[in-house]
């Protein structure tokens, strides 16, 4: 015992050096490609920044404009709606994970692959495919509805349905990822717990609610954090589904689909209003931080750690 202690204290700096050397590639990458841009963006959010660089300090002007801009309010509302309803993907994933986790179920690998396929598919390809499914005149969904005598809407061009149509795609493409994590979580639950419960006479359903769910809560917490952050940063799906580039604005449902990141994209890369765009993403950063802190606060109420 003492010998080992002695060895460790002899060259503490060498060990620390090794530690730093090991994290250096990641650390440097993070610092150069993430931290530095974040700091720069924070700075630019207080400036007016033209198309070709060259910026002038304007103080809080961009932020003042932010609060009076109806498009910002709308984009935040759309994004929050998407985020909250997107959380429905979690119970769906748990149910499917539980079904796949039943002992003696054949072809689990096949199912797992099928569920995971949307995750490894390019978001752009997913969006293009759904665009066709949702087509008002020629889409598969409306063709099927027509068989039942229902005249389906133009799903992604109708302000009443567009956002929900989008959420369905978002949930569909994230269920696979969540399901794999939940499945891993379930397989980590000690078998003895179930054995003891069945000896006490608890049925499968009761076991699910009393053992599986509480034991999965740390996994669910992780998923909800990741999914909320992902939803708040939603861009590619909307960008392709509404119609790329400026064409998106000609979609009658655009005001129901526009997300915060999309608004940022338009200001930064379309209308050459980069200082303001920087202010928009700084506001998004704050929103993400607040919601994540809130989730960590709330976890005490529902997350059980063993």
């Amino acid at each position: 015992m003492t010998g080992r202690k002695h060895a460790a204290s002899r060259k503490p700096w060498t060990e620390a050096l090794w530690g730093y050397a090991f994290i250096a590639p990641t650390g440097l990458g993070l610092a150069i490609f993430y931290l530095w841009p974040v700091l720069q963006t924070a700075y630019f959010s207080f400036t007016e920044w033209g198309a070709f660089g060259g910026h002038t300090w304007t103080g809080l002007e961009n932020y003042a404009r932010l609060f009076g801009d109806p498009e910002v309010g709308r984009a935040v509302l759309n994004t929050l709606t998407y985020t909250v309803l997107g959380l429905l993907g979690i119970p769906i994933a748990i149910v499917f994970a539980a079904l796949l986790n039943r002992p003696g179920l054949g072809g689990v690998t096949l199912y797992r692959t099928a569920f995971f396929l949307p995750v490894v598919t390019m978001p752009v390809a997913v969006a293009m495919l759904w665009r066709w499914l949702y087509n008002g005149d020629y889409g598969l969904i409306n063709q099927v509805l027509a068989l039942a005598g229902i005249d389906g809407p133009n799903w992604i061009a109708d302000p009443a349905t567009a956002l929900y149509a989008l959420i369905v795609v978002g949930v569909w493409s994230s269920v696979g990822y969540n399901l794999i994590i939940f499945l891993a979580g379930m397989q980590a639950i000690p078998k003895e717990l179930y054995e003891a419960a069945s000896m006490d006479g608890a049925g499968r359903v009761r076991q699910f609610f009393r053992i599986t769910l509480p034991m999965l809560s740390p996994t669910a917490f992780f998923i909800s954090i990741v999914s909320v952050i992902g939803s708040l940063q939603l861009f590619d799906l909307v960008f392709v589904m509404t119609g790329s580039g400026q064409a998106a604005r000609a979609n009658p449902a655009y005001s129901r689909l526009q997300t915060v990141v999309q608004l940022f994209y338009e200001r930064a890369f379309v209308t050459n209003d980069r200082g303001y765009a920087a202010a928009i993403v700084m506001a998004l950063l704050v929103l993400i931080a607040v919601l994540t802190i809130l989730q960590f606060r709330l976890q005490r109420r529902w997350v059980h750690y063993v």
């Binding site: 949702y134 087509n135 008002g136 005149d137 020629y138 889409g139 133009n154 992604i156 061009a157 109708d158 119609g243 000609a250 979609n251 009658p252 449902a253």
Partner: peptide, 8 residues
Amino acid sequence: DLKTMTDT
């Protein structure tokens, strides 16, 4: 109408 032209 515009909805139709958005889809196709």
